[in-house]
Deep mutational scan, measured.
Amino acid sequence: NRRVIAMPSVRKWAREKGVDIRLVQGTGKNGRVLKEDIDAFLAG
C-alpha cells in the first residue's frame, strides 16, 4: 500500500473519473501523479 504523491485537485479528478489513483504511474517530480497521468491511464 504505497503512498501516492498527488495534488488534491488531481485526487479529486481521479475520484470523478472512477480511477484508483494507486494504480496510476506518476510521471511528475518524485513520481507525482499528474492530471495527464490520469487521462493517459484512462486512455489505456
Rank of each mutant, 00 (worst) to 15 (best):
N1M: 10
N1G: 14
N1K: 14
R2I: 12
R2Y: 08
R2K: 14
R3N: 11
R3Q: 12
R3V: 14
V4P: 08
V4Y: 06
I5T: 08
I5K: 10
A6R: 03
M7N: 15
M7L: 15
M7K: 15
M7G: 15
M7H: 15
P8F: 08
P8D: 08
P8M: 11
S9T: 09
V10F: 02
V10N: 02
R11I: 09
R11V: 07
K12M: 09
K12W: 11
A14H: 01
A14E: 01
A14G: 03
A14R: 00
R15I: 14
E16N: 09
E16W: 11
K17V: 12
K17T: 08
G18M: 08
G18V: 03
G18E: 06
G18W: 05
G18S: 06
G18T: 03
G18I: 03
V19Y: 02
V19A: 04
D20K: 04
D20A: 05
D20V: 04
D20Q: 05
D20Y: 04
D20M: 04
I21Y: 04
I21P: 03
I21N: 01
I21S: 01
I21T: 02
I21K: 01
R22G: 08
R22L: 09
L23K: 13
L23G: 06
L23P: 00
L23N: 09
V24H: 00
V24S: 00
V24D: 00
Q25Y: 14
Q25G: 07
Q25D: 10
Q25T: 14
G26Q: 02
T27H: 06
T27S: 13
T27F: 03
G28S: 03
G28R: 02
G28V: 02
K29I: 11
K29N: 09
K29P: 13
K29A: 13
K29W: 12
N30S: 09
G31Y: 06
G31R: 06
V33A: 02
V33D: 00
V33W: 00
V33G: 00
V33F: 00
L34R: 09
L34H: 06
K35Y: 06
K35H: 09
E36H: 13
E36P: 07
D37W: 05
D37P: 01
D37T: 00
I38R: 00
D39T: 09
D39G: 05
A40D: 11
A40Q: 11
A40C: 12
A40T: 12
A40E: 10
F41N: 03
F41V: 07
L42G: 05
A43Q: 13
A43M: 14
G44N: 15
G44P: 09
G44K: 15
